[in-house]
Each structure stands twice: as C-alpha cells, then as structure tokens.
C-alpha cells in the first residue's frame, strides 16, 4: 500500500513550457530512454534517440503501422532486448531486466492482442495481479493460514476494482467467456491490481465498440487523476485528442515529433509520415527516403509488424 500513497495527481499545465520537438526534456520524467535500437536482420524496427515521459500524465504514442510502437513497448518492458541503448525508470537503470522484474518495479503493460487468461475465472484473473502475495511461494502455499489474511485483502481490492470497471456481474465466469471489450476492461483492471506507477496500454481501444470506448476513456482518465502515469498506443485520433496530455509520434522506428495533440496535427513531419512527403511540395527525387516512406504506408510494413510479434513470442 505504501506505493499507492506516493502517487499524486499532476497538473497537465506543467507541460506548457516544454519545447514541442522530438526528444524534449520534461520537468519530471518518470521514464527516460536513450539511444534504443532494435534490429531484425536488416530492418531497423526501433531507433529512438531520446524520449522522456512526464510523470502523472497521459502520453499517447502514435504512428503508422510498422512504426515500431509495439516493439518499443516490448523493449521497455523487458519482453525483448534492444541491440543498443539504456533507459531508466524512476531514476533506476532498467536494461536487461526480465519482464516480471520490470513489472515488480511498478511498470506494467497490457497487450495489443488481449491476454485474458481464459480458463481462469474473472476474480482469479484479478487476484493474480496482486503483487507480493506470499502464498505464491511454493512452500508457503501449502500452509493456508500463512496467506489467508493477505488473500482476503486482495479479494476486497479485486472486488472494488471489478465494481469500478463494471465487471462484478461476471465475477465467477471464466475470463474466456467475456466479450472483446470486457477483456480489455479486465486486462486494465488486472494491471491495476499491481498498483503500477506507470501503466502502458497497447491499443486499449482496438476492436471495442464506441459505447465501451467512452467508458474505457473515462477509466484511462481516472488513472491520471490517481496520479498514475499512462502511456498508450492508439490509432484512433479522436481518442488521442480526448485523453492525451502529450503526444509522441513514431515513424520508421524513430521519434519524429512530440507535442500536445493540438500542435501535432499541424506538424509537417507527422503529416509526411502518415500521408507521404510529396503531397504539397515539389517532387524531390531522393530514392532512399521515398522508398522508406512508401513502405511505411503499404502492407509490407504490416508484414514487418507481424514478424516483430512472432519474434517476441519466445524472448531470450
């Protein structure tokens, strides 16, 4: 519970004086990444020079398909190892930490393809998220009294979260019976069981109907109000406009722009990355850049994206 009380809400106005450029320094960064590179053979999937994420606010990570957003998530959370680079979380260096250790530091993630644990009930899914349950130790597990009281606290917390996410009517059902949107809710609620300082949501709104999107948005905002830091990947610009305090744009593995959502729409580099470079300027014959940017648009980039996810399935 001590980690919980440390959190306090941050006023988004704190970012008003931050320069709107890629790699800009934040007043109070919770996550700082420098020089992170990940190559898959000849493909440079991620090449981030510098990124700082402001504590207590919602940062959106956007970019065309194949920009390296999910790979970047995987690198930061220990599910994949970068070829180069280092990053700190709360001032502590994080490189080469196993995923479960990253999570224990207070940095928890969700997945693009929702990972509800199908054959486990909703309430057990929730209880799994609780950190430092001593009954997870093999020898203590056999002695019920050693962890009974803790389990009771965890269950109360889980029930409270289920109520908040309106899943309490599904409490005893297998998680596999939930709808797609409910799974997203469950995954978010389960992540909250760990009391994270930083929560990383990979496409939390993908495949969710508009009505549920609204309630998911409210939940994301409520995380900020609790003082938690949120980074989320999203393709829906309405969503990004609605909740984000700061937007980071990735393309071809690198960060090309940063700023509040109002400024991002006018940023030329961003428009170029999404639409191609030749839309309003004279055709500049530069084989390398045009070829690269075209590939960001067409499906070949998507193929690279799937290649990335398959590689990650067996880390190390």
């Amino acid at each position: 519970m001590s980690r919980f009380t440390e959190l306090k809400a941050v006023d988004p106005a704190i970012l008003d004086n931050v320069p709107q450029e890629a790699g800009s320094a934040k007043p109070d960064a919770i996550l700082t990444a420098t020089g992170i590179t990940r190559r898959f053979g000849g493909l440079v999937a991620v090449d981030v020079n510098h990124l700082e994420v402001q504590r207590g606010l919602i940062t959106a990570l956007i970019g065309p398909n194949g920009a390296g957003k999910t790979t970047f998530f995987n690198l930061i959370t220990g599910f994949d190892a970068p070829d180069e680079g280092s990053w700190t979380f709360e001032g502590k260096p994080m490189g080469a930490l196993a995923p479960h250790k990253v999570a224990r530091q207070g940095m928890v993630r969700t997945f693009q393809l929702t990972k509800a644990l199908s054959k486990i009930t909703v309430i057990e899914n929730m209880k799994l998220g609780a950190p430092s349950q001593s009954g997870e130790n093999f020898f203590k597990a056999l002695l019920h009294p050693l962890w009974r009281d803790q389990e009771k606290d965890i269950e109360e917390k889980a029930d409270a979260l289920l109520e908040r996410f309106k899943l309490n009517h599904m409490r005893e059902e297998f998680a596999g019976t939930l709808s797609g949107g409910q799974r997203k809710l469950l995954e978010m609620a389960r992540a909250l069981m760990t009391d994270p300082k930083l929560i990383m949501l990979d496409e939390p709104m993908a495949g969710v109907n508009p009505a549920l999107t609204q309630s998911l948005l409210e939940h994301v905002k409520s995380l900020r109000d609790e003082g938690r830091t949120v980074i989320f990947v999203e393709h829906d610009m309405d969503v990004v406009r609605d909740v984000s305090d700061w937007v980071v744009v990735m393309a071809e593995g690198g960060i090309i722009a940063e700023g509040p959502h109002s400024a991002i729409g006018e940023n030329k580099a961003v428009v170029d990355a999404y639409l191609g470079t030749t839309h309003d300027t004279a055709l500049v014959f530069n084989e390398e850049t045009t070829a690269k940017i075209d590939s960001a648009k067409i499906d070949s980039a998507k193929i690279a994206d799937t290649a990335v996810t398959t590689e990650i399935e067996d880390p190390q």
């Binding site: 959370t77 990972k115 998220g129 997870e136």
Partner: peptide, 18 residues
C-alpha cells in the same frame, strides 16, 4: 493460481510480475 496463469498465457503472467 500462478501455475494456471502460466498455462494460459506465460507473457500475461510475466507482465503481472510473475
């Protein structure tokens, strides 16, 4: 619970600190 979670999805269990 952790054992069953690992059976269902190892990465999900890892992401929750297991």
């Amino acid at each position: 619970r952790v054992v069953k979670a690992v059976r269902e999805d190892e990465d999900a269990a890892r992401a929750l600190g297991k």
